[in-house]
Design a protein around this nucleic acid. Structure first.
Lengths: 193, 193, 193, 193
DNA sequence: CATGAATGAGTGTTCATTCAT
DNA sequence: GATGAATGAACACTCATTCAT
């Protein structure tokens, strides 16, 4: 178990540095220095830098999925679920900005790292994607959302959240992000309706 | 003028390669080989690889803005403008996929390349951003769109389009993108309403 | 301590090559090849080529200072000290010609390498310069040398030795350098008297 | 004749830049920019950068020799000649510092540029060296200088002057160089006596 | 498990020189 | 003579990965 713990410590640190500097501007040296660990020892836990990046996105995807799953499991209107989900997302963004940044800046933009052969990146985030799928299907079933191609709806949700996240990174938003919560949630809900 | 023409040829080639391989996996050698040009000569036109990337995004942003400006200039309902804009975007995506990929995968995800001092990346795409701003302001003025923070609306438009674009890159969409046009346009319109 | 030893091995080799080819015509490849070392490993010991050159001149200056300090510490007339010093210098020139060449051809002639900010090159050779200063002060105190501006006296000593060193490098001198020792020593002594 | 004039203009500019930046840190571009001339045209006047450097040292050597020849031609004691020569040297150093710097920092320290096959650099400065030779021979003939190997005497003269020149370059001397003239002249005279 | 010295292929950039116009 | 675009070899430095200890 100790081994798993250490791997997670490495992943958490890596996510922070990757999300700040990008994958290609982060060196293994930097990561292990932050961890007071030796380069050689790093390779006892991960076979390569790319593999670390892949394990990291699975880690993030799982973490993002947990709250969403919790919301999906509840007996609520889809309207409430969307609002709760956005609420949650903003909390996450404020508490673990590095994970969100990692998701949008590193994972989504560096296909060559996360693809191998044909099985591509998307599957690495499947925990998260599957919960989104469930949210949408429930909404369609109960009549709150109109029948739409999944990918269109997915784009509305993840795209809009991604958009506001990028703007945060550009430092053009107000410091207090909370003022955007309701507007974003309502817009997403309207888009799916 | 010959010089400008050559610079543009270089930019167009660079965008193709950058968008396929990413900034860090593209070498100057690759770019100049594609152009049947020597390395040294490349540096007669651009002082550095980063500078090439920056000039490239301005090029893309201008190109994206042209059609949008044309639409904005017409006397149409905002509903029609949104549909026209999405129409246009999908055309652009099919005709110049490399430019869209460049915008979303290279530009938005590599701050360190496009920022210098404080003046950051966002300004490089201002041609495009300004037209979006105009589209929204007109819609609010004529009552079709609800009053919303600009950044929220911007996230809905650019985010949703970005979302569908990423999914295209993941090869999970149908080959015929046209089936998504209307759904996307309607969703964006609903979000802004 | 192993690290220091290796650094010194690198420095000694570098001095040989730098002094033969000059700083700009010496490549890191050449240096590491001579040492049966890899390029990458070189950079584990020195952060840059310039830094290697700077550390090298400190090394030379220290080595030049040692014998001079030994002479200064003895109870001798300044006449004897000058003769001993010149004697020593010629020995040094014959045993470690590369160090002397490095001092005169690389260090003194490439300010841009050895200056950084305002603290300039001269300070790097301070071990050597300080001993010269002591030699002169003692001679003035005991009345053998006339009171003169330090820089004038320094020019007479270091300049004259530098002169004969350059001529050696031009291959215009007799092979047996010893025939110049006494003449040089006497001339320097006369100049300082 | 126009051609010769242009060559000299190039040489004079080159000396300034070479002496400031060193041979290897000076580009042909820099030189021709200073002259409002094109790179291509430069090569109509000099076959290579090295050749420019060689022609430049001949130019400097000739210029240094002129005054010295004038002094040698007069009917004066060697004492007066030495003082006049040093006087002259200091004037030269103040009026054309770039030529002196070129002589000491570029020419004397970059053998590889000025040597070709066996005929080495020294011959390029022969105008200057020959006048020094004459100065010394006259002094020996008239009994003012002691019989000494030419190279020893040459080292005393050129070395000492070189020494003070280097110190000037290090910015350790007083701004008013004139305070060193007499001391330097007397020291050199004493050394040769 | 842990260390960190060692490897070496790879990259952005420079610049003397050429040559078509 | 004059221009400056074009060439391409060369070089400092980086960094993921290995491996002896």
């Amino acid at each position: 178990m100790h081994r798993i713990k250490k791997q997670n410590r490495i992943i958490e640190t890596a996510i922070k540095i990757f999300s700040t500097n990008g994958f290609y501007n982060t060196t293994i040296s930097q990561i292990v220095s932050s961890l007071n660990m030796s380069v050689g020892n790093f390779y006892n836990y991960f076979p390569s830098k790319k593999s670390l990046a892949r394990k990291s996105i699975v880690f993030v995807s799982k973490k993002l999925a947990i709250n969403l799953k919790y919301i999906n499991d509840q007996d609520l209107t889809s309207y409430d679920k969307i609002f709760l989900f956005v609420e949650n997302y903003f909390d996450f963004l404020q508490n673990y900005p590095e994970m969100i940044e990692y998701f949008f800046r590193v994972y989504l933009s560096n296909r060559e790292i996360f693809c191998e052969n044909d099985r591509c990146s998307f599957s690495l985030a499947e925990d998260f994607v599957n919960e989104i799928k469930r949210l949408l299907q429930d909404g369609i079933k109960n009549g709150e959302f109109s029948q739409k191609d999944f990918f269109i709806s997915f784009s509305c949700i993840a795209g809009t959240l991604g958009g506001i996240t990028f703007l945060k990174g550009e430092h053009v938003l107000e410091d207090d992000l909370n003022i955007y919560r309701e507007g974003i949630a309502q817009s997403i809900y309207n888009a799916l309706k």
